[in-house]
């Protein structure tokens, strides 16, 4: 997977962005969801991680081509007893990172239920990425790559699959970027409208400013402009730098 093309950057001080996307991280307990997220946001392994209680939140800015995207990440508890609480956070998510543990077949068995739940409750154009975590523990593997890959292929178009390790950091950014790219493509092709509440995506100031100066959105590396005209009705009046102060 050509992840290297994405050119990720560390979070900068001034965090303006083109798009804001809401993600949920879901899956059985003890599959390493919080660690994966921690590695993604802090670039280090989270040692002595406790069970997540309910839900926790963090965010990170990533760069995808020319686009700066702010990811709002909701980390959910995997334990059954929190299910009724965590399900409420699926509402209006644009992306879901579905995590299982490659050394624990039990965590793989219920994926259909997790996926169905997410698709029923999140945004209608939810992009899912299946992540087989703990890929560093090859000797304890219980779920083969090919099996998971096949399962992903059988379970819908919007489902990508890869394996990662929140211990070594291997492939930790890829699922988040894959989802972001898929969502950007949806926006570009007009399937997804960030202007609509509940899509899980909204425009940032940066995108609006660019719209004002060039009166069209260009998508950097995705600039094959397949977007239908008029699908993006931007509130240009919201950003007119300086012309209306005082």
């Amino acid at each position: 997977m050509p992840i290297d093309d994405y050119n990720t950057e560390a979070t900068e001080l001034v965090e303006t962005y083109d798009f804001l996307m809401k993600y949920i991280v879901i899956g059985e307990a003890a599959t390493g969801k919080s660690c994966l997220l921690h590695h993604f946001t802090h670039n280090s392994f989270k040692d002595h991680s406790q069970h997540t209680i309910g839900v926790e939140f963090s965010s990170r800015l990533v760069k995808l081509g020319e686009k700066r995207i702010k990811l709002q990440l909701w980390d959910t508890a995997g334990q059954e007893r929190f299910r009724s609480v965590t399900r409420s956070y699926y509402r209006g998510a644009a992306g879901a990172i579905l995590v299982y543990d490659i050394t624990n077949r039990e965590s793989f068995k219920n994926l259909s239920r997790w996926l169905a739940d997410a698709r029923a409750l999140a945004s209608p154009h939810l992009v899912c990425v299946l992540v087989g975590n703990k890929s560093d523990k090859e000797e304890e593997r219980e779920v083969e790559w090919s099996e998971a890959s096949r399962w992903a292929a059988e379970n819908g178009e919007c489902l990508h699959f890869l394996e990662a390790s929140s211990l070594t950091g291997d492939n930790v950014e890829a699922p988040f970027l894959l989802a972001a790219r898929a969502i950007l493509l949806s926006i570009e092709s007009g399937i997804l409208d960030p202007e609509k509440a509940g899509s899980g995506v909204s425009y940032g100031d940066r995108a609006l400013r660019r719209v004002n100066s060039s009166s069209r959105l260009s998508f950097g590396s995705f600039s094959g402009s397949r977007r239908k005209k008029g699908t993006l009705k931007l509130k240009v009046q919201n950003w007119v730098p300086g012309t209306r102060c005082c």
Partner: peptide, 24 residues
């Protein structure tokens, strides 16, 4: 001038559910 500008800015942006803060 700053305060008037901020007031205007907030009046315009404040209606958004999620606001992105510009460096300015």
């Amino acid at each position: 001038k700053i305060s008037r500008w901020c007031t205007n800015e907030f009046r315009e942006l404040g209606r958004e559910t999620i606001i992105d803060v510009t460096p300015t």
